[in-house]
Write a protein that binds this DNA or RNA. Structure first.
Length: 489
RNA sequence: CGGGACGUGGCGUAGUCCGGUAGCGCACCUGACUGGGGGUCAGGGGGUCGCCAGUUCAAAUCUGGCCGUUCCGACCA
């Protein structure tokens, strides 16, 4: 590992990839746009995933698995949906390879498939194909299914975690007998997304509805959580869609009501992806690397001993082991980094780079005085405390760091959301970075023009919008909505 | 798909203009000394210089072609 990472202020993009590669979160795959999630990065994802999974299950959802391969014809069944994904699909056309005279590997032309297969960019179509088979009566509803899966979107420009050709996510697909219930489901999930972001990722998010131009292809309404990254750009961190009867109609999924009428099923779908890892990096990271909120840190407490030889290490272990076990028994993820031939200083830097929220430093100085040195990653403060208090101190400290990281990120976001009244101010702030809350006349044209001129997009129409006395920032007409504009990833 | 840049040990690069023994930093291996913020010294391994052809006594270096990567634009969670 080479020393140091590019400072955030110098080159944010380079800083971001430096953090990922040097903290060993991920690496580039051999096919353009693919990535390998390394064990440390995957451990973070598993913690994030487990929390979502717990909350989905607690709200009545079950996991299932649908196929990776989808008949090409399925995608065409919902007109808006095809248009949304047509330009970024991987397509399977053949099923065999062969070696030719030169001993090179070729696609065997005789293995051409009769119907080409696409690799799922999302699973609405296969799932609704199956739902048609499963739904007959109102008694079969609701269906509340989630799947953890990979999807493929053939992207032109990719970035680790934020946009890769293949990524991991969860996609929920629910079917309901009436609109209200489907909308309620859509918003219930959005609430879970928001709560996990706030309470576990320590990442404040704005919630709201997407404009027509920004919503999911095939949805009636798309709701989202939007977060502000450290460079003041926006990142869509999760979406929840009310699909109305669009997919039910496309796949002819009807059910019999209590009154023996026939009606199309109402639907929702929703997802968060490994993109969240990118968000965590950019919301919390600093010039020393990653900062992980304790809730999703694979190692919450790293113990770094000072020792010259096995004998000294043994004495330190005798001193510290009981406390390590006690922390571990409390469910705290604690690790003793006793790798030999690596200086404590090296370990300090490495664990700071990897974002471990707290560190205990233990050497003979501490042993003699019955103390231990505690370092917290969020503020980089060090303190020497009595060894007797280490358990409660550390466990409280983790809670404190979790809260503090949210407060820090929330303050940062709020300081960088601006109200403006003229388009000049608007452009000025968009250039400097930040979110803008302002009026919009509701037309696709002004939204598009603003995007062309400033690269800013409407991130969402916040739930608490107050458009009444506002004018459109672009046309000056009375505002239809109060919206959040920002440059986005 | 348009425009620019670049391909030299695992990573980052010098050398290319002006052809002549492939060099450096990091990482890696061995040993000793070290250890309170990325240790020091000594020794060591690893490169058909993206590929193919051409010019030449001689090509990382010159010429032509091909391939790949990357950055900037249109598209996107």
């Amino acid at each position: 590992m080479s020393k140091g990472i590019t400072p955030k202020s110098e080159d944010h993009n380079k800083w971001y990839t430096d953090v990922i590669t040097k903290a060993e979160l991920a690496d580039y795959g051999p096919v353009k746009g693919t990535m390998v999630i390394k064990p440390y990065g995957f451990a973070i994802w598993e913690l994030v995933k487990d929390e979502f999974d717990r909350q989905f299950k607690a709200t009545g959802h079950s996991n299932a698995y649908f196929p990776l391969f989808i008949p090409k014809s399925f995608l065409a069944k919902e007109a808006d949906h095809v248009e949304g994904f047509a330009k970024e699909c991987a397509i399977v056309t053949h099923s065999r390879l062969m070696t030719d005279e030169d001993n090179t590997i070729q696609v065997d032309p005789s293995s051409k498939l009769e119907e080409e297969i696409i690799v799922r960019p999302t699973s609405e179509t296969v799932i609704w194909h199956m739902y048609k088979k499963w739904i007959n009566s109102y008694r079969d509803l609701p269906i509340l299914i989630n799947q953890w899966a990979n999807v493929v979107r053939w992207e032109m420009r990719t970035r680790l975690f934020l946009r890769t050709s293949e990524f991991l996510w969860q996609e929920g697909h629910t079917a309901h007998s009436n609109k209200d219930e489907a909308v309620e489901e859509t918003l219930k999930i959005l609430d879970i997304y928001k709560n996990v972001s706030h309470n576990h990722l320590a990442m404040p998010v704005l919630t709201g509805r997407k404009t027509n131009a920004e919503k999911f292809a095939g949805a009636v309404d798309t709701y989202c959580i939007e977060a502000m990254m450290g460079d003041k750009r926006a990142l869509q961190a999760g979406t929840s869609h009310y699909l109305g009867q669009n997919f039910a109609k496309a796949f002819d999924v009807k059910f019999q009501t209590e009154n023996n009428n026939e009606e199309y099923v109402f639907a929702s779908s929703w997802g968060v992806s490994t993109r969240l890892i990118g968000a965590i990096i950019m919301v919390h990271g600093d010039d020393s690397g990653l900062r992980l909120p304790p809730s999703i840190a694979p190692t919450q407490v790293v113990v770094v001993p000072f020792f010259k030889n096995d004998d000294e290490l043994k004495k330190i272990k005798d001193y510290i082991d009981p406390y390590i076990h006690q922390l571990s028994n409390m469910g705290i993820r604690v690790l003793l980094d006793d790798r030999p031939k690596m200086s404590p200083g090296f370990k300090f830097n490495e664990w700071e780079l990897k974002g471990a929220p707290t560190r205990l430093e233990i050497g003979f100085k501490e042993i003699e005085n019955n103390t231990i040195t505690v370092f917290r990653r969020d503020t980089k403060q060090k303190e020497n405390i009595s060894i007797d208090s280490v358990i409660t101190y550390t466990s409280n400290l983790l809670d404190n760091i979790q809260d503090n990281m949210f407060v820090q990120a929330n303050d940062f976001m709020n300081k960088n959301i601006f109200s403006v009244s003229t388009y000049d101010e608007f452009k000025n702030i968009i250039n400097k970075g930040g979110f803008i809350r302002c009026g919009w006349d509701g037309s696709d044209e002004s939204e598009k023009k603003i995007k062309e001129e400033t690269k800013a997009t409407i991130r969402c129409i916040p739930f608490d919008e107050k458009p009444d006395n506002l004018n459109c920032i672009f046309t000056g007409k009375p505002a239809k909505h109060e919206v959040i504009f920002a440059k986005a990833y």
